[in-house]
Nucleic acid binder design. Structure first.
Lengths: 203, 203
DNA sequence: CCCTACCCTGAATGGTCGTTCAATTAGCGA
DNA sequence: TCGCTAATTGAACGACCATTCAGGGTAGGG
């Protein structure tokens, strides 16, 4: 809300990012406040200075990471041309990247944690439902655009959006868990094949 | 190994089932040994009498539940006629059932927990990969059968298996999390639509 | 009716955190 | 430079919980 983020806001997002990283690294159940504090070189007490409790922090961190992912994709989408190109971007964004030793861990590993927590955390559940809906709407919009341009066959864009979103989730799980038969390349191929079949187009 | 299950074996599976139920009910992180013990009306010490540690118990319980699910589907498949009917069974088995107040909770809610744990538990990861492979192989086999019978178009059954398995996983996640736009009925419809489109058949 | 092996438990134990708080430091406007 | 507020922390507290263990029940064989 404030024009420039206060130090408080900066610190809060820093902690949220550290929390996401720690969950990604150690797993949801093994994440301790001390681990998060270590990650930013601060004391455990500082974490509780910015957040009311560990539970609230975990919830906010997963909501935050979710939002970051969606915002990133939305940004990329605007830079694309044809509807087909936009679908390619959506697919690419859904592929878990091989975790690199260097920077941030891939946000994908947080999804199972978010799903697991959503079952008992109404706040997180609501955020997840909202962002998933928005994600499907983005797919629908691209499809409608392609249909209007004559790029795609005239199909039900809502049904397609649910199918593609589900397909990408399911494939991404396998890739993330390093299933030997489904790597990122195979995921890309199979997702594109589905799109081409459903929309009768080339991606 | 022993011809008739010893009391020990009975007790062990009873505890594994109780553990699954507790994880389903309270969530992975909130599952305590005392909760599991309560579930079967025993003391916490008994749990550790049959399992070396809580971590080992959680791993075994998730592997067990996984196995139970796959065995159940395999059993149902054998009672089906046409390849199309078998696909319908696979789809139906993948739909999370609305949790009933009465009996067992639906096993689907354990998947996110299994995925989350797999990331750090090699035993569970291996079991999961093996059973997923077997699940896809079942799909492939049905498709091959349908192709041989002329029921289905001649497509790559491995690719199809990965796609259908992923689609079902992704849809099931939404259903399980009670997403307002994807309930079990919608899931069924969309999965069947995919199958019909890909195989050029009626289910 | 004892004996023995197996089940099972109640009651400690020990450690691990989340959380609190009083005290210290750093920033900054006057 | 002096205060005032916000940021930060070390240390302590207390709860919770996995795990251990010494012993009590119990069933079945001798």
């Amino acid at each position: 809300m404030s024009p420039r983020p206060s130090l408080t806001e900066t610190r809060r997002t820093e902690i949220l990012a550290a929390t996401s990283a720690t969950i990604a690294d150690r797993g949801l159940c093994e994440t301790r406040i001390a681990d998060i504090a270590d990650h930013i070189g601060a004391s455990p007490a500082l974490i509780l200075y910015y957040f009311p409790s560990k539970a609230a922090l975990l919830t906010e961190a997963l909501v935050y990471q979710d939002q970051v992912f969606h915002d990133a994709v939305k940004g990329e989408l605007d830079r694309a041309g044809s509807a087909a190109a936009k679908l390619a971007i959506l697919i690419e964004a859904s592929c878990p990247k091989a975790s690199r030793g260097d920077g941030e861990p891939d946000g994908w590993v947080l999804w199972p944690a978010a799903w697991e927590m959503s079952r008992h955390d109404p706040t997180l559940a609501a955020a997840r439902a909202r962002l998933d809906e928005s994600w499907r709407n983005q797919i629908s919009a691209v499809v409608e655009e392609g249909i209007a341009d004559g790029e795609f066959d005239d199909i039900d864009s809502s049904d397609f959006a649910i199918q593609l979103a589900a397909l990408l989730d399911g494939l991404a799980i396998e890739v993330m868990l390093r299933d030997p038969t489904v790597d990122a390349a195979r995921m890309r191929t199979l997702a594109i094949a589905f799109v081409e079949m459903a929309l009768n187009t080339r991606v």
